[in-house]
Computed example of a mutant assay.
Amino acid sequence: MGIVYAAPAVAPEPRAAAEGRFMSWTGVNGDVFVLSADDSNPAMQRGVQGLHMPDIQVFESSTPLIHGSELDGYTILPRRVFWPLMFQADTAAQWRAEHAAFFDSFHPTVPGTWTVGEGDDARTLGLVGTFDGGHTFDLDPFYTGWANIGVELRATRPLWAGKEIRREYEAELEPDFIPTDPEDPTYHPTSVLGYTSARIGNPGNEAAYVAWEIDGPHPPGLIVGVESFVITIPFEIPEGSTFTLDTDPTSGYAALDGVDMSTQLGFQIFAPVPAGGDVRLVISTEGTGRVLAKLTPLYWRAY
């Protein structure tokens, strides 16, 4: 057996134009902490976990009649996250206040929000802390003014959420026409996206569900849905009222002006928009109110 000797790989220097990735934490109490700036407190250090691919469990089956196995499907397990954080301050009082404010923003069962990226490029992940009481301080941070603390977190919903996609539709105006009046030969196109032209796309890695926000007036019998999976709203949505319907089975709700209407809808089967898909939305009504369709794409990674 031959042995090949090679020099160890050396990490390249960062490009001159490179920029660090923006990161922030929004706690359950609404407090926001920027983690990625040089003067952040706390500041993110090397060794972050949770940004890349999730833990995917693949299901497979086998039979003595066929060599190998069949891949039957997969599920994505809760995501483990680790933050290596540096806490530092100029005074003991400042260190105590800022350290306390950060850890007071966590809750064992209510998620806060980790944001990576900015603007349209930002993605978010809901996290809870998984504290076991085992952290030790090698040095007294009230004396040194700093401490490295590794924070273990968990995302029970392991997919990163991208920017919400919003598509607004209204009742069709009069159709396009060219007047026959020689005094006014102007072509008059309609400018509003009508109910019959409703579509929505999903750029994410996983299927995602549509949430509806519907303004009255609409009489009973309004129909909305994705492709052939539709639902009939059996009650009136008066003018000035808003009906909201979230079809995601993990967080679904139906409310008219904030009043729960789930029992009036009964049992329903909603269809998601497939990953990478662009589907027809069904909107059928005798009403004229605005219909807003919203979808939050879900991604495997933070970028």
Rank of each mutant, 00 (worst) to 15 (best):
R123H: 06
I165E: 02
R154M: 15
P141C: 04
D138S: 13
F137G: 00
A147N: 12
G162M: 05
N148H: 13
L139G: 04
G162P: 11
T156M: 12
T144K: 14
Y169L: 12
P141Y: 12
E164S: 10
H135G: 02
E152G: 08
A122L: 08
A161P: 02
N148C: 01
F137I: 04
R123K: 15
V128D: 01
G150R: 11
F142H: 11
P158A: 13
Y143I: 14
E152Q: 14
F131Q: 06
R154A: 12
T136R: 14
L127W: 02
G145Y: 09
I149Q: 12
K163A: 13
G133D: 03
E152M: 08
G162Y: 01
F131D: 08
R167G: 01
E164P: 05
E168K: 14
R166H: 01
G162H: 09
R154L: 15
E164H: 04
N148P: 05
I149D: 06
G126A: 10
K163D: 09
D140G: 01
E152S: 14
G145Q: 07
L153D: 04
K163M: 02
A161F: 00
V151C: 03
Y143M: 13
K163Q: 14
R154F: 08
I165F: 00
K163T: 14
A122F: 04
G145S: 12
E170N: 04
G145F: 09
G129S: 07
T130P: 01
R154N: 02
R157P: 00
E168S: 15
P141E: 10
L159E: 08
R123A: 00
L139W: 14
Y143V: 15
L153I: 00
L125Y: 09
L153N: 03
G150F: 13
V128F: 06
E164N: 08
Y169S: 02
R154H: 09
L153K: 02
K163P: 07
G133F: 02
L153A: 15
L127K: 00
T144S: 15
W160P: 03
G129C: 01
V128K: 01
L159I: 03
P158Y: 07
G134T: 11
D140Y: 09
E152P: 04
G145K: 07
F142R: 02
A147C: 13
D140N: 15
L139K: 11
N148M: 09
L159G: 01
R167M: 13
E164W: 06
I149A: 04
L153Q: 10
E152H: 13
T130L: 05
G134E: 09
G145E: 03
V128W: 02
A155N: 03
G150D: 15
F142V: 03
T124Y: 06
D132G: 10
N148S: 13
R166D: 06
Y143R: 15
R166M: 06
A122K: 03
D132I: 00
L125F: 02
E164V: 12
P158S: 11
N148E: 14
R167N: 13
W146V: 14
I165M: 08
G162Q: 07
T136Y: 01
T124Q: 09
E168T: 15
F131Y: 09
